[in-house]
C-alpha cells in the first residue's frame, strides 16, 4: 500500500523515442536501436538477446498482420532498477480472441504460432491490448537484471 505511493516504487521514464515500422527493412535498424539502449543501461548479453528476440517477434507481427505501425522505445527506472520498455502500436485488424492468440501453436498465418507466447516468456512484463477493427498494442518491459 505504502510501497506503491513512495517515490521509489513509481516507474520513471528516463528517455523516450519512437520508430516507425513500415517495411521489413526497418526490422534490423529497430533491433539495433534496442541493442543500443539495452547496452547503455548495462543489460547482460543474455537478457539483451531475449529482449531483442521478443521485440523482433512483435515487429514481425506488426508488419505481417497490421501493415506496420510504430514502436515507442523507453528506458525506465523503478525501485532503483533500470529497464527497457517497448510499446508496439498498430492500427491493423486487431485480434478477436487474444487468449487464443497467446497460445503456443495458434496461428492464422500458417506459421508456428510462437511469436506472442514466446515473446511473453522472454521478457519480464508483457501486456497486450487489442480492439478488433482498431488495432493492437503490445507493451513489454525487460529489467536490467532480467527479473
Amino acid at each position: 500500500m505504502i510501497l506503491k505511493k513512495t517515490r521509489r516504487s513509481l516507474m520513471i521514464v528516463m528517455t523516450k523515442d519512437t520508430m516507425q515500422i513500415v517495411r521489413e527493412q526497418d526490422v534490423v535498424p529497430f533491433r539495433n536501436r534496442v541493442r543500443e539502449l539495452s547496452t547503455k543501461i548495462g543489460m547482460s548479453l543474455v537478457n539483451q538477446t531475449k529482449l531483442i528476440t521478443a521485440a523482433s517477434e512483435l515487429v514481425r507481427n506488426m508488419l505481417k498482420y497490421a501493415n506496420g505501425g510504430k514502436v515507442m522505445l523507453e528506458t525506465v527506472s523503478k525501485n532503483a532498477q533500470s529497464g527497457i520498455r517497448l510499446i508496439f502500436m498498430d492500427q491493423g485488424p486487431g485480434i478477436t480472441n487474444v487468449q487464443q492468440a497467446m497460445q503456443d501453436g495458434f496461428s492464422t498465418g500458417k506459421s508456428l504460432g510462437l511469436g506472442l507466447p514466446g515473446a511473453k516468456r522472454l521478457v519480464n512484463e508483457f501486456d497486450i491490448n487489442s480492439i478488433p477493427g482498431e488495432g493492437t498494442t503490445v507493451t513489454i518491459i525487460h529489467w536490467k537484471h532480467g527479473r
Binding site: L45, V46, Q48, T49, T53, L114, G118, R121, L122
Partner: peptide, 14 residues
C-alpha cells in the same frame, strides 16, 4: 550458435 542465442531459442520454444 552463441550461448545467448541458444538460451533464448529454448525460452521462445524453438
Amino acid at each position: 550458435m552463441q550461448p545467448a542465442v541458444a538460451i533464448t531459442l529454448v525460452e521462445l520454444g524453438l
